[in-house]
Nucleic acid binder design. Sequence first.
DNA 1: CTTGGCGCAAAGATATGACTTATTCAAGCG
DNA 2: CGCTTGAATAAGTCATATCTTTGCGCCAAG
Lengths: 232, 232
Amino acid sequence: MEIQGLAGRLLGELGPAIASGELAPGTVLRAEELEERHGVSRTVVREAVRILESMRMVAPKRRVGITVQPRAEWDVFDPLVIRWRLAGADRSAQLRSLGSLRVAVEPAAAALAARHASDDDRRELSALAVELTVTARAADLERFLEHDIAFHATVLRASGNEMFAHLKDTVGAVLTGRTEHRLMPHRPREYAVQLHREVADAICAGRPELAEQAMRTIVVGALEELDATLPR
Amino acid sequence: MEIQGLAGRLLGELGPAIASGELAPGTVLRAEELEERHGVSRTVVREAVRILESMRMVAPKRRVGITVQPRAEWDVFDPLVIRWRLAGADRSAQLRSLGSLRVAVEPAAAALAARHASDDDRRELSALAVELTVTARAADLERFLEHDIAFHATVLRASGNEMFAHLKDTVGAVLTGRTEHRLMPHRPREYAVQLHREVADAICAGRPELAEQAMRTIVVGALEELDATLPR
DNA sequence: CTTGGCGCAAAGATATGACTTATTCAAGCG
DNA sequence: CGCTTGAATAAGTCATATCTTTGCGCCAAG
């Protein structure tokens, strides 16, 4: 999953540093300086910088250096960028953006899933809805989270749209972040669990509008909680 | 915008070759072979391969080689991957995926824009709606396309969500592709133009539900036309 | 005949020195 | 004052050497 080797390690230092603003846009780095500071060779520096360039986070220019790009340029859909931003200073902004994205995508995915889901998908959704109910009652936040992630991932996959399916890790990261940072009630709300069950039932029954509406209620609720809890 | 230098050139050969299936998943490349075949040095090959690795299109492994990854692994939101796929063999699948994404995102963006758009944004949208009407009547497809792209880009930007805003190039690519491949009527439909005007009016008037609904009609219509026209 | 470990060789990973090219900046000239 | 030119600089490229990991075959023990 991760980029291998020393280049990956260096990337794991530079990426978060840029994402968090520690290396502000406009900052100019020099390749040689990076070599020394991180104790790696040119080869490694160049590879890491190239990857950051492909994410539009830096722009190397001859005779100038490696310039950190403004946020607006960044490839904000890149999984690494999302992860780095979630880990760093603008976690709030990233969570808000992702919240809106979820509101847009997940209801649509649920509707598509109600049309296209395989029998296996439907079975899995039902099972997961049950698990959610059980773990919620037991106030087992850890396993609840696990099944919640699996539930949303399954809906996204069952939509049959590869792009939706790829948002699974992103959605997972949002849900994880929410639990980790105590943005959730200590015991999952009964109402939210009920909605998940409705989504599962609607998808199993092949009723797109119902699935879409229930899912929309879930993600809108999540976004509102986020807005109420996050700073600013 | 592009990756610079020889690594960029090599990337521009390997990426499309993989995206089009010419280099099928499972194919094993060797770095040395790439050096010879493309007449570049190790440095360049490694940089290009690293970028492809960060897109999850290849996975380098010692003692094995550089393996082309299955599609499901690819970072389907990466602008380069999208461009390569649109240019190559599975243009249809990519257009369909993007169509669904638009159906999910653009109505939500329009609703947000109705709440958050700046005065400049609103003015620009109105102006663009007029331009669309004019160029449609004149059957000036080229300039119609240009303004259509600007219109959708403006809505996405005016939503205030950076992730939505970043989909502007992607949406632009879809619209361009559609015009290029004669998937559009020779003269833009009066009805479609009218809907754009409705979106602009609703956003200017600060009416989210109206804006969302009109935009949904636009993108659903586009998706249906796509489905009707595309092979398979 | 099976199984487990040992070692070799293959292929990527890293380091480094030499050289090339583009770009900025400023000095010097008109 | 503006334009040209050249020197300095930093990235870009190449070639080569060395290191590290790991797949696979061979051989011996069970």
